[in-house]
């Protein structure tokens, strides 16, 4: 996944300035920054959404690799702003030529939680495992499988189970994890949760971090101890355990008092501060 653009000299803008910067055509850098800024500061004004939807069809801002940086940022921002007007335009982005625009769109659609995108996401899995090859000369596969599969899992797309399942065996570990994560969300079968627990023991720190995030996202409680013992930064482990705790607290919500499970999770978190 690409790093989100986050400038170090955080420039202070007003909402009006950011929208104006996004709509002007002269300074591409300002437009790019404004698109990030509106998402980062959760500016949900209708005018901000309008401007981002225009940016989602921009032709001016082009990267050396032929990509569309402004569209990528606009898609990410729209995912954060929760406006359903973005759903149909983002679904159209799933067919766009730029891989990173498709990836950002799939992630944004996951965040928006609107199930109308499920069939469009599923279409990108056509050809199954055999089609899911790396693009020659690029670090990524032909489709943003991680983002697509994670979105289908979050959206509770039970109709996607058969198509997602083979990806648990994909040769990219992060795709395997995304598939295990989605399969767990869709089936609640602990086989998939345990698969992610096993990934916490891997040799590569990036992959261990990835598994920590996935376990937090699915709230897989049996992983709690293994998470606390994983060789990774405490910050990452705390975020992962918070995911488990949030899930457990939802289960508790019928009770007034905290459950023993929640207390145990918090004790583990206390030990990582």
């Amino acid at each position: 996944m690409q790093q989100e653009y986050e400038p170090s000299d955080s420039q202070s803008l007003t909402v009006e300035e950011a929208i104006a910067n996004l709509l002007q055509k002269e300074d591409l850098g300002q437009r790019y920054y404004a698109s990030w800024w509106l998402g980062r500061f959760r500016v949900k004004d209708s005018a901000a959404i309008d401007a981002l939807l225009i940016a989602l069809e921009d032709e001016e801002d082009r990267a050396p690799d032929g990509g569309y940086p402004l569209r990528r940022n606009a898609a990410r921002a729209l995912g954060k702003l929760g406006d359903s007007r973005a759903v149909a335009p983002l679904i159209r982005c799933l067919e766009f030529q730029d891989f990173y625009v498709r990836e950002a769109a799939a992630q944004a659609l996951e965040m928006l939680g609107d199930r109308s995108c499920i069939s469009a996401l599923l279409k990108l899995l056509d050809g199954g495992l055999a089609a899911a090859k790396q693009v020659p000369g690029k670090p990524h596969l032909v489709q943003p499988y991680e983002a697509i599969i994670e979105a289908l899992g979050t959206l509770g797309a039970a109709e996607a189970i058969e198509q997602i399942k083979p990806f648990v065996e994909h040769h990219f570990p992060k795709v395997q994890y995304a598939a295990a994560r989605a399969m767990y969300q869709l089936t609640r079968n602990s086989v998939y949760g345990e698969r992610l627990v096993k990934a916490l023991q891997g040799n590569d720190l990036q992959l261990r971090r990835s598994a920590l995030i996935d376990l937090g996202a699915i709230g897989y409680l049996p992983a709690a101890e293994a998470i606390a013992l994983t060789l990774a930064e405490n910050s990452m482990k705390l975020i992962s355990l918070r995911g488990l705790l949030e899930y457990q607290l939802q289960q508790d919500s019928t009770n007034v008092d905290l459950s023993q499970e929640s207390i145990q999770l918090m004790k583990l978190m206390d030990g990582l501060l």
Binding site: R242, L245, E246, L249, L258, S262, M266, M269
Partner: peptide, 10 residues
């Protein structure tokens, strides 16, 4: 943040 509320409750 629900985790912070829960910790306070604890």
């Amino acid at each position: 943040e629900i985790a912070v509320r829960a910790r306070s409750q604890m």
